[in-house]
């Protein structure tokens, strides 16, 4: 079992490494994509400087906590788009019958399928996240918790995309719904929880698991409590399990389109 996991991780690592090497062929584009993404994210600091000049706290968050929230949202987004980029294209992969390539390989179909390419600009998101945690307060504890929460968040975001995209096995095109849910999560995750009132908060801890990807991690890093950490880890494992279950169940209904293509 452990050897199998080790082998899978090794193959996944190599797949990501080759995908990255492909993207690095044009060095200028590679570097400019990363730098511009960092600048792009940094623009939002202006928004918060202005908002905090109008009011001392926004949604119960201090300015530093908002910086942390943005850093975490960016890091989470970066992890999901860099390592699991193809989870956001899964619906098209299923609909166009492009899964054949992965079915003939002796490794897990889902993992191979969602890690076969990388989004270079997502490295900018990851670096921006690390800059933000440095501004918030760089300690070993903060950094480790930040990275752990970001990885968990990235896995949850990718899992949600897999769950919704896998519905394509039964219902055809579901990418519009998957894109909408992803954009919903990104938009909400960048605003303090305290500005929202009423039933919407129930959504944050259920259908849109912003509790796992954004709000509880902020509380965890600001004020460590073991229960928060357990909540994040169990929530992440739950979403990953559901993603595998739904995908594997759907895979039984998959039919090839006899599409001829080569995976380089």
């Amino acid at each position: 079992m452990l050897t199998e996991v080790k082998n899978q991780l090794k193959v996944t690592g190599q797949s990501i490494r080759y995908a990255l090497q492909r993207e690095m062929l044009n060095k200028v584009t590679f570097v400019s994509n990363i730098l511009f993404m960092i600048l792009n994210n940094a623009c939002f600091i202006i928004q918060w400087i202005i908002l905090y000049s109008l009011k001392e706290d926004v949604g119960g968050y201090t300015f530093k906590q908002v910086i942390l929230l943005w850093g975490l949202a960016s890091f989470t987004y970066g992890i999901s788009r860099f390592f699991f980029r193809d989870s956001f294209e899964l619906s098209e992969t299923i609909n166009c019958g492009k899964l054949d390539n992965y079915l003939v390989q002796p490794k897990n179909v889902l993992i191979q399928c969602i890690t076969s390419s990388v989004e270079v600009s997502a490295l900018g998101d990851i670096i921006y996240g690390l800059i933000m945690i440095t501004i918030f307060g760089l300690t070993i504890k903060n950094l480790l918790l930040f990275i752990l929460c970001g990885i968990c968040g990235g896995l949850v975001v990718a899992s949600i995309s897999v769950i919704i995209s896998s519905l394509s096995f039964w219902f055809g095109r579901t990418e519009v719904i998957a894109n909408t849910i992803n954009s919903l999560m990104t938009n909400f995750a960048t605003y303090p929880e305290g500005i929202f009132k009423g039933a919407i908060k129930i959504l944050f801890y259920t259908i849109l698991p912003l509790g796992i990807t954004a709000y509880v991690p902020i509380q965890l890093i600001s004020d460590f409590k073991l229960i928060y950490l357990i909540y994040i880890i169990i929530g992440t494992l739950l979403f990953i399990t559901i993603a595998f279950l739904v995908f594997n169940r759907g895979l039984k209904k998959y039919s090839s389109s006899n599409l001829m293509n080569v995976r380089i």
Binding site: L51, N187, G194
Partner: peptide, 19 residues
């Protein structure tokens, strides 16, 4: 796709109500 528009308006409505 308009769901995103509704969400943005909802977020800003809450934000400005708070401010």
């Amino acid at each position: 796709g308009f769901v995103s528009y509704c969400i943005m308006i909802f977020i800003f409505l809450n934000l400005w109500k708070y401010i």
